[in-house]
């Protein structure tokens, strides 16, 4: 066996003309319609045989909000005006991020049948998960606006910033989703790690509170907590949405710049890792 290997020709030099392989980004772009179809498939399959169908997407946050409003206005009294709206303006983007990352963990694994048989950029699977959750997120804005109207919250022009905010958050979420999707292929227990981490991140993110309203600055843990929040990219992401919805103003320029940088960084790192590791996925599925 060994002798045979030695006798065989050495690997051919790469000098001869190779046809240009498409760059990963261009290849992904040529499959954009597949991503759209996968999003449609996910929505169709998810709401199959359910009477209310897509309405659930809107009912879900509404019901959640009723629960939180009751809890926070009776049991744990909050000094916030329209606390439920304050909460919802960060809870909706959080749910989007959280669900996309969690579902994305299995995006590659659950499509292994296809990956074994058809050549395609595997990033379409995690990205379509982000896409279908983005649709849900966008639909959940309808009940959000209903609540705003019911609570006499002013509709300001700052709300026009929302699509930009959602775009930035989507870019950020895509990077994180891609990163953990490829990690799960190699170690299945990434899932449990991520589940716990997401819980921690939720409490370390300004969902139930706000940087400005955070406890007594004199307590020992305050500076630590504040640093945590300032380092957490989600703090800036949520500001992009909470500022227009709850405070009726545009987010500060510095917030936008930090959020954009975090989003680009996340996508570049996530996509790079995914792209580098995806040829090896097939051996671990």
């Amino acid at each position: 066996m060994k002798a045979m290997e030695l006798a065989s020709p050495a690997p051919a030099a790469l000098a001869t003309e190779s046809p240009k392989r498409p760059s990963p980004l261009r290849e992904l772009w040529s499959f954009r319609q597949l991503i759209a179809l996968l999003v449609v498939r996910e929505l169709k399959v998810r709401y199959k045989r359910s009477v209310l169908g897509l309405l659930w997407t809107m009912l879900n946050p509404l019901l959640l909000m009723v629960v939180y409003t009751v809890v926070f206005s009776t049991i744990w009294r909050s000094s916030f005006r329209n606390f439920s709206l304050f909460l919802l303006s960060a809870l909706l983007p959080w749910l989007f991020f959280n669900t996309a990352v969690l579902q994305g963990l299995f995006a590659v694994i659950s499509n292994q049948e296809l990956i074994r048989k058809v050549r395609l950029p595997q990033a379409v699977f995690p990205l379509s998960v982000v896409g279908s959750n983005l649709v849900n997120f966008a639909l959940s804005l309808v009940p959000l606006f209903l609540v705003m109207a019911a609570l006499d919250q002013p509709f300001t022009p700052a709300l026009l910033f929302l699509p930009v905010a959602m775009f930035i958050l989507t870019v950020f979420t895509s990077g994180v989703t891609l990163f953990f999707a490829t990690a799960t292929v190699f170690f299945r227990d990434v899932r449990h790690l991520v589940e716990v981490m997401l819980q921690m991140v939720m409490y370390l993110s300004p969902v139930f509170y706000d940087l400005r309203t955070l406890g007594e600055p004199t307590t020992w843990w305050f500076p630590l907590f504040k640093t945590c929040l300032q380092l957490n990219p989600l703090t800036y992401m949520f500001s992009l949405i909470r500022d227009p919805v709850y405070y009726g103003r545009l987010p500060e320029l510095s917030t936008v710049v930090i959020a954009c940088s975090a989003a680009v960084f996340s996508l570049v790192v996530g996509f790079f890792f995914f792209q580098r590791l995806s040829p090896r996925h097939i051996h671990y599925l």
């Binding site: 498939r41 169709k44 399959v45 199959k48 049948e113 296809l114 048989k117 058809v118 050549r119």
Partner: peptide, 13 residues
């Protein structure tokens, strides 16, 4: 590739 017919069919659709 006809490596396998109907690879990628989703039974629910």
């Amino acid at each position: 590739p006809m490596i396998e017919l109907g690879a990628g069919f989703d039974p629910e659709l």
